[in-house]
Simulated assay, not measured.
Amino acid sequence: MPIDVAQALAAEPRSAEIAWGHKDVQLYHLGIGAAADPDKHHPATDPDELRYTLESRLHVLPSFATVAGAGSPGVINGLSMPGVDVNLAHVLHGGQTIGLHRPIPVEGKAVATSRIAAVYDKGKAAILVMRTEVADDEGPLWTNDAQIFVRGEGGFGGDRGPSTRPEPPTGEPDRTVERPIREDQALLYRLSGDWNPLHADPEFAKLAGFDRPILHGLCTYGMTLKAVVDTLLGGDVSRVRSYATRFAGVVYPGETLRIRMWQLDGEGAEGGNGGMDGKGGNGGKGGTVRVTVGAADRDDAPVLADTVVEHN
């Protein structure tokens, strides 16, 4: 069997030193649409956008954790772990969770330790949970969980995994925004370290069952968190404690995301960020933002689901 579950779970964690600087942060922010907000008259020089693009004002959106160190915690790395030997064309990113211990610095060096934390049997597919814990000299920074969906690798009689999902948000959203995706968005985003040809090579995309290359799920993930921070969290990235989503559908470059947000003050605010210790201002009481994301061009076809941002 291409996935040896026992070997994958028993494998020694892999540790690697990672480093990033302001150029990496700026490139990532541009890759998720910074300085391109259609609601702003001159977005490239708007003070709110300069926090994402100008080194003298820079802060780091927490979703940068998915690419820090050239994408070390990414899906591709999970497929190189012992016991895992699968066809890349059968792989999709199923979901992503980030837990923050403290705000991510603009410049940093850290150690990223990765392992397969779980393997779930979904019948026609398997799900690998790739966990990466990152710490610097001052202590833990963040934890990434990437859920890797592998078609055709289920049916081995294993644990199906957690079945609980949050109830869909009800009532009218507090905010709804639309974010257009540039035709070259995937080509720009992949420069941050996710080189999967599914997002650039038309022939590979066809082998994977798509008419053309699709946008990285993590690009949509970053665009969505930026929208939440900018509209409901006062532009303060340090308020984010955790961020989780399930990738429910594909997005194509050139389409428009419709992002709906519900602010639920106090819900899940205590102990809901994966046991993070709250250093650096990320602890204490806060609230939750529930989010849905759809493709506006395709009758709001679901793109991100079960999306939760917990914050101070």
Rank of each mutant, 00 (worst) to 15 (best):
G268W: 02
R290A: 14
T256V: 09
G222E: 07
V240C: 07
R258N: 12
G286W: 00
E270D: 14
M276L: 07
G254L: 13
K279R: 15
V240S: 08
R258Y: 04
R190C: 05
T292I: 03
Y189P: 02
M261N: 03
T231Y: 08
R246K: 08
A296L: 07
F204R: 04
G249E: 02
R241Q: 11
L233D: 01
A227R: 04
E255Y: 12
P197A: 13
D265H: 06
G235D: 01
A248P: 00
G275L: 05
R241P: 07
R212M: 08
P202D: 01
A269G: 13
Y221E: 11
M261Y: 03
D194R: 05
R246V: 12
Y243N: 07
K206F: 04
T256M: 06
T288G: 13
K206R: 11
G294M: 04
I259D: 04
A296E: 06
G217N: 01
K206N: 10
A205L: 06
R241L: 06
G234C: 05
G278D: 08
D236L: 01
L215D: 04
G235M: 03
W262E: 04
G287P: 03
G274H: 00
V250L: 13
L264C: 09
I214S: 13
L232F: 09
F204M: 01
G222S: 08
K206C: 10
G268L: 05
L225I: 00
M276A: 15
Y189D: 03
K279T: 14
P197S: 11
S192I: 04
A296W: 00
T220G: 12
T220R: 09
R212T: 05
Q263C: 10
G249F: 00
G281N: 12
A186H: 10
L225P: 00
G249A: 02
F204Q: 02
P213R: 11
A208M: 08
K279Q: 15
R298N: 12
S242T: 05
N273F: 06
G222Q: 10
L191C: 07
S238C: 04
P253Q: 13
V293D: 12
D297H: 03
L207H: 15
L264W: 11
D201F: 02
V228R: 11
G280A: 08
V240M: 09
Y252H: 15
D297P: 09
E270P: 06
G287E: 01
G272I: 04
Q263T: 13
C219M: 02
G286F: 01
A227W: 01
R239D: 05
G222T: 03
